[in-house]
């Protein structure tokens, strides 16, 4: 008997589980017809017969009318720029200065001696007995107008659509102009040093940055002779993980998310009265925001 069931029969059976769309939508306070139309068109988008921009264009104004302030999704821009801008918020009240982030970063990116994408600056302020210790963790700020990108003669360092400032180590000529120009000291030149003596097999992996497998770390082989810096763990973001420093932070002082989404945790924190940015007068527009 089972063999006589056709594809459509199976589908009908499965569909019995589904709620009746009209019924279901009637129960919500919002427009039923809009919901049905959108669902239909969404199927077309999935099937590829309608493009996503047209979809957004068609519904954007009705959605705004229907949901008002609750509707926050930006329409996809046709020029290809995205509504995603990765940013980080670091709560200095929560930071205990343990340097775990620095260690996690070194382990994740296997940076050689002399290079650390993340540092924690420490300072004691005040006079005895009224003293306090200030810790300032600093990765690359992934600036809005990155001075490092302005000066690079070969366009080896550039800003991605998602806001991350990256380096193409296969193009970089190692002129170090970007190190000169970065107002935060976020960049380092790879002199080719290695931990091989302290740590066997350090050289086995060159640099896992940007998800590129380069094999053994050897003389004159990329990225040696080029400039390196924090890339917000782009390779981890691509597989849905937070940057290593954020994941590790023992005080949960670091937050990571989309600064263009007004509902994200980072956006809300970035708008809090405690928020400030380093060297905000420089015009670089850092996307690492601190809470004091």
């Amino acid at each position: 008997m089972l063999k006589q069931m056709l594809q459509t029969d199976w589908d009908r059976l499965a569909n019995e589980r589904l709620a009746d769309p009209v019924n279901e939508l009637e129960q919500s306070p919002y427009d039923t017809k809009l919901g049905l139309d959108m669902a239909n068109d969404a199927k077309k988008v999935v099937a590829g017969s309608l493009n996503i921009e047209a979809f957004h264009k068609k519904y954007h104004s009705s959605l705004l009318g229907e949901f008002g302030n609750l509707f926050t999704q930006e329409p996809v821009k046709s020029d290809g720029s995205s509504s995603l801008k990765w940013g980080m918020v670091i709560d200095l009240q929560k930071c205990v200065g343990c340097d775990s982030c620095t260690v996690a970063c070194k382990a994740e990116n296997r940076t050689p001696p002399g290079i650390s994408y993340n540092v924690v600056l420490e300072e004691e302020i005040g006079e005895f007995p009224n003293v306090a210790k200030v810790n300032l963790p600093m990765p690359c700020m992934h600036c809005d107008n990155p001075p490092c990108v302005q000066v690079c003669p070969v366009r080896a360092t550039f800003k991605l659509d998602n806001g991350i400032v990256t380096i193409d180590n296969d193009r970089c000529i190692g002129c170090r102009y970007c190190i000169i120009a970065c107002p935060y000291g976020a960049r380092s030149y790879d002199f080719g040093e290695s931990y091989e003596e302290e740590m066997l097999s350090f050289n086995d992996v060159t640099s896992p940055e940007y998800g590129i497998e380069r094999g053994k770390r050897e003389d004159r082989k990329t990225p040696i002779g080029t400039v390196r810096k924090c890339n917000f763990c782009l390779h981890r973001l691509e597989r849905g993980e937070e940057p290593a420093c954020v994941e590790t932070c023992i005080g949960d002082a670091r937050f990571f998310g989309n600064l263009n989404d007004p509902n994200s945790t980072v956006s809300k924190l970035a708008n809090s009265p405690r928020a400030f940015r380093l060297k905000s007068e420089s015009g670089a527009g850092p996307n690492v925001i601190y809470l004091k």
Binding site: V154, A156, R171, I173, G174, R176, Y189, T226, V227
Partner: peptide, 12 residues
């Protein structure tokens, strides 16, 4: 750092 790539300055 990478003298072998100096031509990049003209290409890119």
């Amino acid at each position: 750092g990478r003298p072998d790539r100096f031509m990049n300055a003209l290409i890119h």
